[in-house]
Design a protein around this nucleic acid. Sequence first.
DNA 1: ACGAAAGATTAACTCGGTCAACTAAATTAT
DNA 2: ATAATTTAGTTGACCGAGTTAATCTTTCGT
Lengths: 218, 218
Amino acid sequence: MGEQVGLRERKKQRTRWAISSAAVRLFQESGFDQVSVADVAAAAEVSKPTLFAYFPTKEDLVLHRFADHETEAARVVRERADDEAPLAALRRHFLDGLDRHDPITGLNDTRDVLEFQHLLYSTPALLARLPAYILRGEEALADALADIDGTDPFAARIAAGHIVATQRVLSTRNVEEMRIGRTATDVHPEAVARAHAAFDLLENGLGTDFGGSSPVRR
Amino acid sequence: MGEQVGLRERKKQRTRWAISSAAVRLFQESGFDQVSVADVAAAAEVSKPTLFAYFPTKEDLVLHRFADHETEAARVVRERADDEAPLAALRRHFLDGLDRHDPITGLNDTRDVLEFQHLLYSTPALLARLPAYILRGEEALADALADIDGTDPFAARIAAGHIVATQRVLSTRNVEEMRIGRTATDVHPEAVARAHAAFDLLENGLGTDFGGSSPVRR
DNA sequence: ACGAAAGATTAACTCGGTCAACTAAATTAT
DNA sequence: ATAATTTAGTTGACCGAGTTAATCTTTCGT
């Protein structure tokens, strides 16, 4: 009755996890380029074709962790309360993330997270693929925004671009602070201030700071 | 006297162009994945190592054309008149691009450009690398904005994110219109309207359309 | 318990990208 | 002009990512 998970499915999950964790461990030990996928497959005790049945490329062995959070912004918008504006929901969610030291905000100084960030930031091949992941999340957010009644789909697309860019810059900045050795607790107040400043820019525009051609509106 | 270009340098330029154009031609004829770099090298009458001396990866054989425009936004900001606001300069430059049917705006229905876009949009491997190129342009723009006196570097970074996202969405939309067979002249008025709408959003923020948590400011 | 189906393995292969040793051609100096 | 020095290019071999086909094993439905 109900959701029979099945032995087969459970094994697949275990295998997937075994491959991914073996990969990240080996990459962190010896460097992404110094470890071959054959090494990873051997460490995970699977064959090379099996590895590629689970992960389409070597990079995805690491980056799939971002794919899990890909639709987070879209979800926040879709699941917000009826009386809450999309931007308010996203601001609240990001600030919550900072309070919880959610790794996605960059504000996390756990050893595991720091080492993962280090792997990421010291491997050009991984960095190069990151923007593509982020873009997929942007499209999901654009759809979520466009589904709001009375919204212009084009404005939704633009808005999604602004929002995702904002979150990306905020997180990146926090990661940089962590990587130079500061603690999450130490940085937290500044991170909150930056988040508020950034979301204010989102809501009120760049006009004040970077001027525009249009005569001052309103 | 003056800028001796040198035979050697001229030959290098010719070789580079021979490789790139042979690549694009072959890719367009038979598909990116169906053509090997060995095929390209043969068609350009160079060896494989020579090809990779000019272009770091197979994808770059196509995408290097974007690298040339990478710093365009940054340049527009740096070279603007003293009394012109950054956003005004960027808006003007984009609208100029639309008028000139500059391919970078997406509003160009020339056969060559359309075929190039088709190659790009029908090749996942190329699409996946595009965002990384765009991100480099974003960083250049952030630097240009930060160099303006009295500008907060963090605000500059956020602004660059918003601006590049805006231009990317505008261009992509225009490309989509071209790809469904409409003419540049036909689409031009809408494209101009969208550009103005998008830059207005940039200047005035998303607050009006997507709400916010902050009590109405100013 | 048994047949169907899904998952994994082995082995061989293609292709992107690199390296080292060698050759040819352009530049500089005598 | 010609020798000496750089610099670009070629050849051939190599490594590693990713794929394919044939075969074998394990789980699932009845």
